[in-house]
């Protein structure tokens, strides 16, 4: 896959605060790249820098092989963006009128976009309300209108900043399906930010984790899960552990014991699942009765929490 966005050593400062501190990454053609980070991490700043809505102090950005600063207008013909917090559309116009207007802003006449407009309005479930004023809509429908207006010129690169913020489950699913179809069926490249970990986990091919302007991780979803593949085992025992019992677990690595009346729960995080047999051996020696075993795989949220917490430490 060829690289359509290349960010090299990007630095953006606001007075003394470094919003983005020397980050580099690439986005490949057809890839869905997720950008994760806490508030103020530098996600929106990076997206706005790619779109030339911000002037940055250091580094280079290229889109489709063109320098983003030098060809800031030219690169826009192949990019569509929905920005966080901004209204993105006119509330006193209908979806149909908004799409027509923003197509005009891209230099496209109403006749040229007729088919694409109909496809988008139907695909995003806006066809039945296409003539109603957007201000009467729910947040989800407004967001879908913003998406349709942003991609009416058929860009091959989409930048979506928090597209699911404050949306209901159904709308999130609509947007998830639409993003996946854009990438898988039409080979469009998507750079997306969101706080919704399960949403990101379900659509992204690769995840960047950023905190305080620094890039902490840049891995594919598979790599991330392999790298942080620890499974969390919670074993419930039918009695409390004595001090000598607890001493028996000193060699099993990081673990936690919670006791509640006559029950104990031993929680241990293991990279290799075969290591669980060592724990069973210890429990067998201690003659403990196992009531329940719960196994939990690391989610993207766990990985994100681990990475950002480790960085804080």
């Amino acid at each position: 896959m060829s690289e359509v966005i290349v960010v090299e050593n990007l630095v953006k400062k606001y007075k003394d605060i470094c919003a983005v501190n020397d980050i580099s990454f690439t986005v490949k053609k057809g890839e869905i790249l997720g950008f994760l980070g806490p508030n103020g991490a530098g996600k929106t700043t990076t997206i706005k820098s790619i779109l030339s809505l911000l002037e940055y102090e250091g580094g280079n950005i290229s889109v489709n092989g063109m320098d983003a600063k030098k060809y800031k207008h030219k690169i826009m013909s192949d990019m569509g963006a929905v920005l966080e917090g901004a209204r993105n559309i006119y509330w006193h116009l209908s979806p149909d009128e908004n799409i027509n207007y923003f197509a005009g802003i891209m230099g496209l006449s109403t006749n040229k976009i007729r088919e694409e407009k109909e496809y988008l309005l139907k695909r995003l479930k806006l066809w039945d309300v296409k003539d109603k004023e957007v201000r009467e809509f729910s947040k989800g429908m407004q967001q879908k209108t913003a998406i349709a207006a942003s991609i009416i010129h058929k860009p091959s690169i989409l930048l979506l900043d928090e597209p699911t913020l404050g949306l209901d489950v159904e709308t999130k699913n609509d947007i998830r399906e639409w993003i996946l179809s854009m990438s898988k069926e039409q080979n469009k490249t998507v750079l997306i930010t969101s706080h919704d970990m399960s949403f990101m986990e379900s659509i992204c091919d690769r995840i960047l984790i950023i905190k305080k302007g620094k890039l902490l991780s840049n891995h594919s979803m598979t790599e991330l899960k392999d790298k942080f593949a620890n499974k969390k085992y919670s074993i419930t025992i039918k009695e409390k552990f004595s001090d000598s019992d607890k001493a028996g677990f000193k060699d099993i690595g990081e673990h936690e014991i919670k006791e509640d009346q006559d029950l104990s729960v031993l929680t241990v995080s293991l990279k290799n699942s075969r290591e669980i047999y060592n724990i069973f051996d210890i429990l067998k020696l201690q003659n403990k009765e196992i009531l329940d075993i719960n196994i939990k795989e690391n989610t993207l949220e766990d990985i994100f929490r681990n990475l950002t917490t480790d960085e804080a430490k």
Binding site: L51, S52, L53, H73, K74, I75, M76, S77, M79, G80, A81, L83, G85, A86, R87, N88, I89, Y90, W91, F102, I105, M106, G107, S150
Partner: peptide
Amino acid sequence: QKGTLEKLYLSQIGIEKI
């Protein structure tokens, strides 16, 4: 004020011409 100014920048035509 409306928040649509940034959207007008996202055109290959350029904000001044728009």
